[in-house]
């Protein structure tokens, strides 16, 4: 039974991932006064890409051949850490949050190596920027995570979920709001969204994520994109699960509500901001870092 719940939660995140992106996109379109593509469009895109042969560079080594699968696997395995409506995830026996962040870094490693593997000028550019952003986002994320862990006295994701879901209202604190804001900023940076990266453009001056996967096509592209979408969904679910979590069926509906609200919020943020110049991104991440420091201090002040 536990395994079944775990699989359902995992599949939920994986299946929801393109949908979340579609909601963000739809929000943006609606605000712009456009009709926007259907919510199902990302699913159709991925389905179509999965049925296409991929073209691979003659410079590419086995890294390029395996990296898409590895990136996808890492995202799926990381998704198995995240509780949606029950703390019994597939990894509930060892769902350490630090282990989770380092697992995500494994995906980053292969994505950046994929960027460098084809010997293209763009790939290196994307990889260089990606590792920079990843390195600078790390401290903000770690302090925010530490604050949440210290608040709940545990570093296991499932345990945090359990503790929060027993008394959702009492467990709420000011410092957690700041931690979650910091995590939201990190999530925006890590999932390559405005104002850090623009997912809608292929402009060499600005692109980060797209530059790395410029050489990918067909199934490879589908896998990498799906992996990135799952990563984004993981971040959003992680934040959603920390806001007044409820377990059970009601919790499931509540979770969907939260995820889509966060997606709409991100849509709003995207539409009301311009993409930052790359060397402004560190400032953005530094603000996220400060937010998490404030959350830590506020937590100590509250005790």
């Amino acid at each position: 039974m536990e395994v079944l719940i775990g699989i359902v939660q995992l599949l939920l995140i994986v299946i929801l991932a393109p949908g979340v992106n579609a909601v963000i996109h739809k929000t943006k379109c609606l605000i712009r006064g456009q009709k926007g593509p259907s919510i199902l469009q990302p699913y159709r895109d991925i389905y179509k890409l999965l049925n296409k042969r991929s073209v691979i560079s003659d410079t590419a080594s086995w890294i390029s051949r395996f990296a898409p699968y590895i990136i996808f696997s890492v995202s799926v395995v990381a998704a198995a850490f995240i509780p949606v409506f029950s703390s019994k995830t597939l990894f509930h026996f060892s769902s350490d949050v630090i282990g989770f962040t380092y697992l995500m870094a494994l995906g980053t490693l292969f994505l950046t190596l994929y960027g460098l593997d084809q010997g293209s000028a763009f790939g290196g550019l994307g990889s260089s920027r990606e590792v920079t952003i990843a390195a600078l986002a790390e401290p903000a994320m770690m302090i925010a995570i530490f604050t949440v862990c210290i608040m709940n006295g545990t570093s296991s994701i499932s345990e945090i979920f359990t503790k929060l879901s027993v008394h959702p209202l009492q467990a709420f604190s000011v410092s957690s709001v700041f931690s979650l804001l910091a995590l939201l900023m990190v999530a925006i940076a890590e999932s390559a969204r405005i104002p850090v990266d623009n997912p809608e453009t292929h402009l060499e001056l600005t692109m980060v994520h797209e530059a790395m996967i410029l050489e990918a096509s067909g199934r490879d592209l589908a896998l990498i994109e799906l992996g990135s979408l799952i990563k984004q969904a993981i971040f959003i679910s992680f934040i959603a699960s920390a806001i007044f979590p409820i377990s059970g069926l009601l919790g499931f509906i509540w979770y969907l509500l939260k995820v889509f609200s966060i997606a709409i919020l991100i849509g709003f943020i995207e539409i009301s901001n311009a993409k930052l110049r790359f060397f402004r991104v560190p400032d953005f991440l530094a603000v996220a870092f400060t937010l998490s420091v404030i959350s830590l201090i506020v937590h100590y002040l509250e005790v």
């Binding site: 870094a105 190596l113 290196g124 990889s127």
Partner: peptide, 29 residues
């Protein structure tokens, strides 16, 4: 927690360093 953040940025930079060391010297042309 601040030192943990420092360790985290160390980890991030280590990733960057070894992506560079491996990626530039072994990958590409």
């Amino acid at each position: 927690p601040l030192f943990a953040a420092a360790l985290a940025v160390t980890g991030g930079l280590a990733l960057a360093t070894f992506v560079k060391a491996f990626g530039i010297s072994f990958l590409g042309n």
